[in-house]
């Protein structure tokens, strides 16, 4: 029991350190490119950089966890195929603008029930769509742990930078 606990804490520490190093590195890279690239005052630029930092944070967390977890795998897959998926989505939007109405109606017919709490959780946890409830809860637990770690690390970094 105690050894298990120690191992778990060490594991979280390990993940935390890995996440911190990865995130700092990607953050640095971003800063450098921004510095060479252009201005920071612009609202759109700031928004974009927020998005980028967020993605960097998620990516570094998923990388720190590794592919052993379903949620991290899903997250990595999503991030890796982000550009492609966005392109596909845009194309699909352009193509299916005409019969959009029809599709919406059909979807409504098929999914008539209200989304339950589990469905909400599924949406929140990456990769949760394809899990049964047991897996979902387990992954949620791990995801919460990692998110809390991430928040802590990012908070510390932000404090460091702002002070």
């Amino acid at each position: 029991m105690t050894s298990k606990h120690v191992r778990a804490t060490r594991h979280t520490k390990f993940i935390k350190n890995r996440f911190a190093s990865r995130f700092l590195r990607s953050h640095l890279r971003m800063k450098r490119s921004d510095r060479f690239g252009g201005s920071q005052s612009n609202e759109g630029v700031r928004k974009r950089s927020t998005h980028r930092i967020k993605i960097a944070a998620y990516a570094s967390m998923a990388l720190a966890v590794g592919p052993s977890r379903t949620w991290s795998r899903a997250l990595l897959f999503k991030l890796r195929n982000r550009a492609r998926l966005q392109g596909v989505l845009r194309k699909r939007c352009l193509v299916s603008k005409k019969n959009k109405k029809k599709r919406v109606v059909r979807n409504k017919v098929i999914i008539s029930r209200e989304p339950s709490r589990t469905d909400t959780l599924r949406k929140l946890v990456p990769g949760g769509d394809s899990m049964d409830i047991c897996c979902l809860l387990e992954e949620t637990a791990h995801y919460i742990k990692c998110l809390a770690t991430q928040v802590k690390v990012m908070q510390t970094i932000a404090d460091q930078l702002l002070l």
């Binding site: 953050h27 700031r46 950089s49 927020t50 998005h51 980028r52 930092i53 967020k54 960097a56 944070a57 998620y58 959780l121 929140l124 946890v125 949620t140 995801y143 919460i144 998110l147 809390a148 991430q150 928040v151 990012m154 908070q155 970094i157 932000a158 930078l161 702002l162």
Partner: peptide
């Protein structure tokens, strides 16, 4: 989970600014 994700978002905004 939502609050944590929002916190991440907020912190990344903070870091960006």
């Amino acid at each position: 989970v939502q609050s944590l994700q929002q916190q991440v978002e907020f912190l990344s905004m903070k870091l960006a600014t």
